[in-house]
Structures are given as structure tokens and as C-alpha cells.
Design a binder for these strands. Structure first.
Length: 226
DNA sequence: CCAGACGTTGTT
DNA sequence: GTCTGG
DNA sequence: CCAGACGTTGTT
DNA sequence: GTCTGG
């Protein structure tokens, strides 16, 4: 699955890849983005790309209480078209690209007991990438709450020893451009929803510093010995 | 009919 | 909003 | 995902 | 053990 990720690169480098209007108050390197936090996502509206803050944890439009979003941080790509919480966003093309340059997965010890080891997973060339996301807008007392979830798939060969799920990575321009285009019918996108090419990725262990969502330093992303 | 859930991962 | 369970 | 709370009454 | 919050 994907329960934590990073977006550490500079704004300028991001905008060179994702040419878009910025609707953020500020840009800062994020090393430990956790569920319920706001994070930048790429969305297309009226043919224009925009980077906007959305809250991680999709709140369905029919929810009475937005805390339901705390559980909706991932959607299985295999079932996203059917699940009540996600299918409306899927059907209506409310797709977004969750901007990232690393994500974290926790590996259980071989013995089955003891602390898990967090790993950082990135592209081999360390370029940023997008994760396949769906978004919703929820009408609350405080106005519109915009939220997102991250789609998952089975793991590739790199991730399999670490975890049994991984987020859907849209690393190719053709892929993410189609994903964020609301006019592309969802049926044409299912081929994108598989595990990414493992030979273009790297994974390495990091410190348990990343475990606490309050720890937001670059230490989160630093390699430690096995 | 109404009430209550609506999710994923991992563990057993 | 829609489905499942009672 | 992990960390941290998990309760009530009464008082400020 | 399980739920909530970040």
C-alpha cells in the first residue's frame, strides 16, 4: 500500500516537468507526507493543468462526517470502479496525479515479530513521478473540502520482498497526461494501473525516524545500512 | 421496510 | 447515493 | 503508514 | 486490542 511519501524537490524543478499553474501558498520540501495532511496534486480543469492542495484521505460526496476520509487513503485499482466510496469519482473522471519523488513501505522482519523496517522507494534516476489518484469535493460547513486517495496494485519484483502492495506509479508523460485528462474515458486507463517497471526503480532502508509523522526532516529519506 | 456501512493492509 | 443485513 | 489514546466528573 | 489523528 502507500501510507507515507515524500515530495522533496524544488518547485522550479517540478514545474519544468509538470508545466502547470501553481495554486499553493508556498512550496516546501516534504519528506514525510502522512494521511490527513494537505499535499500538492496535479489536476486538469478546462484544459489547464493546476497544482493544488488536496487533503489525503478521500471523503465521498455523500459522507455525513468527513472523518470517513481517514480510512480512504488507498483504493485497490482492481476494485476502484465498483467500490461505493470511489466509483463515482472513477466514473466522472475525477483523477489527479499525486506529486511525489519517493514513497515509504514498511517491511516486516523475517521472523514475523519485532519492529518493521521502513524503506524508501524512488525512481533509479531520482526524478519525481506521479501516483495515480482520485479526488472528491465534499460540501461541509467550512466550505469545500477537497480530498484524494492513492490507487494501489500488486507489487513488482523490487517491492515484493518488502510489501505485498504498491502505489500505481505514472512515470511516463503519456501515462500521466492521459490520467489527468478528464475527457479520457476510464476504460482506456485500466492498462496503466499495474506495477511500474522495477528496473527503473530503487529501494533502500531508512531510519525509523520516518515512523513518526511529526518528523519531517530530510533524514526520512537518508539511506541507512541494512 | 429501516439501519448501517461505505476501506486497505495484514494477521489469524 | 447505494448496497447489505436484519 | 505509525503514534498515541483508550474515561468520567467537576472545575477553571 | 482497536480506533483516531497526523
Amino acid at each position: 500500500m502507500c501510507g507515507r511519501y515524500a515530495l522533496s524537490i524544488e518547485q522550479q524543478e517540478m514545474l519544468e516537468i509538470y508545466v502547470a499553474n501553481l495554486f499553493l501558498d508556498d512550496w516546501r520540501s516534504r519528506y514525510n507526507i502522512a494521511p490527513t495532511q494537505e499535499a500538492p496534486v496535479l489536476v486538469q480543469k478546462d484544459g489547464e493543468l493546476g497544482i493544488r492542495p488536496f487533503r489525503w484521505g478521500l471523503v465521498p460526496f455523500w459522507a455525513k462526517d468527513p472523518s470517513i476520509g481517514n480510512r480512504m487513503i488507498n483504493a485497490r485499482s482492481e476494485t476502484v470502479a465498483e467500490k461505493p466510496s470511489f466509483r463515482t469519482a472513477w466514473k466522472h473522471g475525477r483523477r489527479c496525479l499525486v506529486l511525489a519523488d519517493a514513497f515509504y513501505e514498511w517491511q516486516k522482519p523475517a521472523s514475523g515479530k519485532g519492529p518493521k523496517t521502513p524503506h524508501a522507494i524512488r525512481l533509479a534516476d531520482e526524478r519525481p513521478f506521479g501516483l495515480a489518484g482520485l479526488w472528491e469535493s465534499w460540501d461541509g460547513e467550512g466550505g469545500e473540502l477537497r480530498t484524494f486517495t492513492i490507487l494501489t496494485s500488486e507489487p513488482n519484483e523490487l517491492l515484493r520482498p518488502i510489501h505485498n502492495r504498491m502505489p500505481v506509479i505514472l512515470g511516463d508523460r503519456d501515462a500521466w497526461e492521459a490520467w489527468v485528462d478528464p475527457d479520457v474515458p476510464p476504460g482506456e486507463l485500466e492498462e496503466l494501473l499495474g506495477p511500474y517497471r522495477p528496473e527503473e526503480m530503487q529501494a533502500y532502508p531508512v531510519s525509523t525516524y520516518v515512523n513518526n509523522p511529526g518528523n519531517e526532516g530530510e533524514e526520512c529519506l537518508r539511506r541507512v545500512p541494512d
